[in-house]
């Protein structure tokens, strides 16, 4: 079975919100739109978004680290939001695992949003129906687009390539390899929702340098010269000539 999903690399996300704006731009004019705003140019603007980028600080100064954290529907493999829907408006597609809302059936009862632990469903105050990330279902299968562009808008917009898209059930896909080899993890595993989207952790690149490597204790020119040998910190032939 196919399970399409995003893998988000927290190691390279810079928190630029490009995915947020490109998501809104694509979806407000597409199948899932409009994503109306209320008071956009006044006090307390608010509106519907499928994707939000949040920022967390880990640790205490001076040992702090900033984690930018994009969050959208995780297209859970055991989605608790789907069975609670009284109308069947919320459903999970069998063919690719995308969780969608049928806006023509939704009665706006908000029950599904209560049943999602991640807070990624938002009721559209204008259309009065529940909305959430569609994984750009109206773009990823669109054959009028060049193949390279058949990806969610957020993935294409990300300037640091922090967002990967693919089938997490195909063990050789880019996303599966990334999850497997770079420590991909799921959010709130305690609820057994089995999110399809995964996150790649922040990583530190550190190298070990031993003293021997710095002073070149094993320099053959120093070892094989006639006695008396020069001290380790005196220049030797390969330090002063360029071969």
């Amino acid at each position: 079975m196919t399970q399409l999903a995003l893998v988000i690399d927290l190691n390279v996300c810079v928190g630029c919100h490009a995915c947020v704006t490109s998501c809104k731009e694509w979806n407000t004019s597409g199948w899932a739109g409009p994503m109306a705003d209320q008071n956009p140019y006044e006090r307390d603007p608010t509106g519907t978004f499928f994707n939000r980028v949040q920022t967390f600080e880990v640790g205490a100064f001076p040992f702090t680290e900033t984690v930018h954290f994009p969050k959208s529907c995780l297209h859970c493999e055991e989605p608790p939001c789907v069975p609670v829907c009284p109308t069947g408006a919320s459903y999970k597609r069998a063919e690719d695992g995308i969780v969608l809302v049928d806006y023509d059936k939704c009665i706006g009862c908000k029950y599904c949003s209560w049943a999602c632990p991640y807070g990624v469903r938002e009721l559209d105050e204008h259309q009065k129906v529940m909305k959430k990330c569609t994984l750009c279902v109206d773009r990823i299968y669109d054959e009028s687009l060049p193949e390279a562009e058949r990806k969610p808008a957020c993935v294409l917009a990300c300037p640091t390539n922090a967002r990967l898209f693919g089938d997490v059930h195909d063990p050789e896909s880019e996303v599966s390899v990334a999850i497997r080899e770079r420590g991909g993890y799921a959010l709130m595993p305690e609820w057994g929702t089995k999110p399809a989207n995964h996150y790649l952790p922040r990583r530190k690149t550190r190298i070990e340098v031993t003293e021997e490597e710095l002073v070149r204790a094993d320099n053959p020119l120093k070892k094989e010269r006639k006695l008396p040998r020069p001290a380790f910190d005196e220049p030797s032939l390969d330090d002063v000539t360029s071969w």
Binding site: H17, T46, Q54, T55, F56, S113, E122
Partner: peptide
């Protein structure tokens, strides 16, 4: 958390 990603309210 340093930012929830938006200034005013949301759903």
């Amino acid at each position: 958390q340093r930012s929830q990603g938006f200034m005013c309210g949301s759903f």
